Computed example of a mutant assay.
Amino acid sequence: MTIELTEIHPGECYRILENERFGHLACCKDGQPYVAAIYFAFSSGVAYSFTMPGKKLDWMRGNDKVCLHVEHRSSAGGWTSVVVEGRFEEFPDSDSRGSERLHAWSLLQKNSDWWEIGAMKPHESPILEGSPHVFYGIVVTAVSGRRAVKAE
């Protein structure tokens, strides 16, 4: 048995992103990469997500170039992998960005556990003035994908 590896057309990559909701987000600071698991909702070239203050948010604010990896494993033993190169864009609770924040929330809340990864921290977060919840988007600048299928 061999594995056949094929490139995926960008249109198919976008369809996969629209149907998945879990991925790994990579960001970088001072040449050091950092990867974190996220839930997201994909629409119109943007992967919408949510987080609380912390390392990931600090790093994305400092360097808006990020990467999202989404993987799907098939029951037949193959896999599909999509990589999004993008730009971090924050949607603060303000008049100028309120509609984008509301749009992000409306897409994310379609799944009951949308907030879990972004809100859970291994230690207590300090109490902040105002809402610490941060909605953001990864605006796609490039997308690529591959599929591995078992061939007999």
Rank of each mutant, 00 (worst) to 15 (best):
S94Q: 00
K65N: 15
E124S: 14
W79A: 05
E90Y: 08
S81E: 00
K65E: 12
P92Q: 04
R73H: 14
W105R: 03
P126V: 10
P92M: 00
L128Q: 01
A76Y: 09
H103V: 10
A104S: 01
E85R: 09
V66T: 07
A119S: 09
E116W: 09
G78W: 02
S96I: 12
V66F: 07
N111D: 15
W59V: 15
G98L: 12
D58P: 09
A76L: 11
R87S: 04
L102D: 02
S99Y: 08
S99D: 15
S74V: 10
M120I: 12
H103W: 03
P126K: 08
V134G: 05
N111Q: 14
P126M: 05
L102W: 11
P122S: 10
E85S: 03
S106L: 08
W59R: 14
G86Q: 10
H133P: 04
H69L: 12
G77P: 04
L102R: 04
A76C: 06
V83T: 08
H133F: 03
G130P: 11
V134H: 05
N63Q: 02
P92V: 04
H72L: 07
P132K: 03
K121M: 10
I127P: 05
S112C: 14
V134T: 00
L128S: 11
N63R: 00
N63M: 05
W59G: 03
Q109L: 14
D113V: 01
S96H: 11
S96R: 11
G77E: 00
R87M: 09
E116L: 12
S75H: 10
W105H: 06
V84D: 06
W115L: 03
D95K: 15
K121L: 11
K65R: 15
A76S: 10
S94Y: 00
V82L: 13
G130S: 01
R97C: 09
A119G: 09
E90H: 04
S112Y: 09
Q109I: 15
W105Q: 07
V83W: 11
M60E: 01
G78R: 06
F91M: 01
D95S: 12
E124L: 14
K65W: 13
L68R: 14
E90S: 06
I127K: 06
S99H: 04
G62M: 05
D113E: 11
K121H: 11
